[in-house]
Design a protein around this nucleic acid. Sequence first.
DNA 1: CTTTTTATAGGTATTTATACCTGTTTTTCG
DNA 2: CGAAAAACAGGTATAAATACCTATAAAAAG
Lengths: 223, 223
Amino acid sequence: MEEHITIGLVEDQLLFRNGIKAILNSWDELEVIFESGEGYSVIDRLRTMDRIPDVMLVDLSLPPDGNRAYSGEQLTVDLAEHFPDMKVLILSGYQDEHFIARLIEIGAHGYLVKDSDPLEVYQAITTIHQKGVYINQLALKAIQRNFGKRTKSVVQPNSDLTRREIEILQLTCEQYTAEEIGEKLYISVKTVNGHRANLLLKTGSRNAAGLVMYAVKNGLVEI
Amino acid sequence: MEEHITIGLVEDQLLFRNGIKAILNSWDELEVIFESGEGYSVIDRLRTMDRIPDVMLVDLSLPPDGNRAYSGEQLTVDLAEHFPDMKVLILSGYQDEHFIARLIEIGAHGYLVKDSDPLEVYQAITTIHQKGVYINQLALKAIQRNFGKRTKSVVQPNSDLTRREIEILQLTCEQYTAEEIGEKLYISVKTVNGHRANLLLKTGSRNAAGLVMYAVKNGLVEI
DNA sequence: CTTTTTATAGGTATTTATACCTGTTTTTCG
DNA sequence: CGAAAAACAGGTATAAATACCTATAAAAAG
């Protein structure tokens, strides 16, 4: 059976991208026909192509460009919208179950950690191409355990943080309570909590720990 | 000129490790003779080998293995001590100048970001093997700007945390509540809160935000 | 073989955070 | 100017975290 599967790669680290390309091309039935180091241009570039990939490997941790980031999450949503036939296989450094459950929820067809065996990548790709989805134990567990749990909506049309929100986020990272932040900024604790609620929503976090991680990942605090 | 250069790889992400191995092996004069997914066992394993690598590629962001955190920094120090003839080429996701300057200071012979071109990796390896060091523009600038500045000690200040505490700290960073952590680890929520109380005490934090910042500063979580 | 540390589990009480609402005023911007 | 966004403030709940205790079994260390 000679079935060619065409692959797309979206991964910011050039070295990793080349490495995985070399691995994938070692299987005859896989063919990498598209690659990109960032997410912004992907949709537009795919539109101009006569052959679009069957399976798109997307790195979750596409880097923030300043603090406005076009994340792998956003790309997953956009790919599902513009190319519904394309299968999206997430590649991520994280094993965070919330991440996994959310990604599957918004349209990913599989989730692999970067620590995976090359053979599993191959299996994931062929399985996705044949059956439309590849759920390994990790992903299954994540889905099961997070089923029904509140997951924040991932994609906000305007996910930019306002100046005040960033200020409050930074003070939160500095371990100030909402009340102390209110005193510091001469505003009501109610207002602070309002901003925090917006921060949770905009960043897709569940709690203060998530806010701090967001701040760190986006360079909003000194570490 | 037929000169064989032997390579060692220390990189936790299996996929990346295999990828870069494939890239390196595409050059005839490079030969990967050692690889490891963590840092702990490297020194011991090298001692038992009859051929040790000329150049060791070390990933900076080696993750803590549950208990003790053995970073790429620590490994660099130890390699320089036990195998002074071996050249260490750092592979890192970060471009932080303090990082770079520090690594060169403690014994690294080159520093590459993971975003590098495969050709540059090849050039870095051959240059290091011939001249003993490979300093590109990025590294040079880092050294110049940070020369004489006091750099943070490499030794992990988190040695006073137990493995269980580190585990709970990491899950806290992943936004799990104490109750969820208890379920995950099959222990009582009371126990989790006990560990968290100890974490607050040991790290000098006031709340979860402080714990996350501590974890980030001490490399106990992937960012 | 002791001693110490770690991991475990429990209680009670208080504080803080978060969810889910409704508003008004101020500022920004087309 | 007028619309939209941002900042502000409040209430009423519940959920979660934190403080401050005790206590025991297992594991590690000396």
